[in-house]
């Protein structure tokens, strides 16, 4: 029992949900020592409201570059990219997304609560509401009792949860995550994956998630984008047959393993070009 009951038949999101991110022929090139390196070439990708999209691929495949282009931290060199129907720069100025980096990037001189309040201060929210939001989102990531601590008094996993609370507290509809759990041990990572899955289910926001880990990508995603290096490009997009409600146990189910197998095949095909 158990496993099949967890696999609800619904697929999320609805196919006609509004488009959040749209990339057409997107390319990013870097100039190093007068040499042009194509980090990303002709990327076509549509991400809809409520999607959980994982970008997976070997180092140098441009998955982080794609995420940074969506966040307007990296200028594209070709193609078109819209976020919430605007240019990426306009979307950034409209505070359309929360971004979780590979490291927590917390400011050590601010307490945990004041770190979470940082975007709210910049956006000019009133003090009372800031405090209330910080409390609420720290509780959401299970750190309600740590508000007055300083980041360096917390473990790595807890620090990353603070950074997730910071990305969520101004309630963006899009969450961009760049290998947020890459530096954590397996068990902590499992816990945070489950936590993130539930957050996504409850809030209905869209998530773009960069990872190296096949199980992580398959467990979390509604769609998995497999990428390949030199030049960075998309080689496969897999719609997950797994339902919206998931528990860690589904990682042993046949459907899960089938998706994981297809991701692995895609990654292997990408590698064979080397």
């Amino acid at each position: 029992m158990g496993e099949s009951a967890l696999l609800a038949s619904e697929t999320v999101p609805a196919p006609n949900a509004p488009v959040v991110v749209e990339a057409r022929g997107l390319g990013v090139a870097f100039e190093t020592d007068g040499q042009r390196v194509n980090a990303l070439t002709s990327v076509d990708l549509t991400i809809r409201r409520g999607d959980f999209v994982s970008l997976i691929g070997p180092s140098g495949c441009g998955k982080t570059t794609l995420l940074r282009a969506i966040a307007d931290l990296q200028a594209p060199s070709g193609g078109t990219l819209t976020v919430n129907g605007m240019s990426a720069a306009e979307a950034r100025r409209a505070r359309a997304y929360g971004y979780v980096f590979q490291a927590p990037a917390l400011y050590p001189w601010r307490s945990v609560a004041r770190n979470v309040m940082l975007p709210l201060e910049i956006m000019g929210m009133a003090r009372g509401e800031r405090t209330e939001r910080a409390e609420r989102y720290l509780r959401l990531v299970g750190l309600g009792d740590f508000a007055r601590k300083f980041p360096w008094q917390l473990s790595g996993g807890m620090q990353q949860r603070v950074s997730i609370a910071r990305a969520l507290c101004f309630e963006p509809t899009l969450l961009l995550m760049d290998e947020p759990f890459g530096a954590l041990d397996e068990i902590t990572r499992d816990g945070l994956n489950l936590h993130l899955h539930e957050l996504w289910r409850r809030t209905g926001m869209s998530v773009v998630f960069v990872t190296h880990s096949i199980p992580e990508a398959v467990f979390l995603s509604t769609r998995i984008v497999v990428m390949s290096a030199r030049p960075g490009r998309i080689i496969d997009v897999i719609d997950s047959p797994l339902g919206a409600a998931r528990a860690l146990g589904i990682r042993e189910s046949a459907e899960f393993l089938a998706v994981a197998h297809r991701v692995r095949e895609g990654l292997r095909a990408g590698h064979s070009y080397d």
Partner: peptide, 19 residues
Amino acid sequence: MERDLMHCYAAGYWPTLLK
């Protein structure tokens, strides 16, 4: 990364300087 974070929030010169 710390500067990118400020950029994400569309923080201008003064908030970035002060915070």
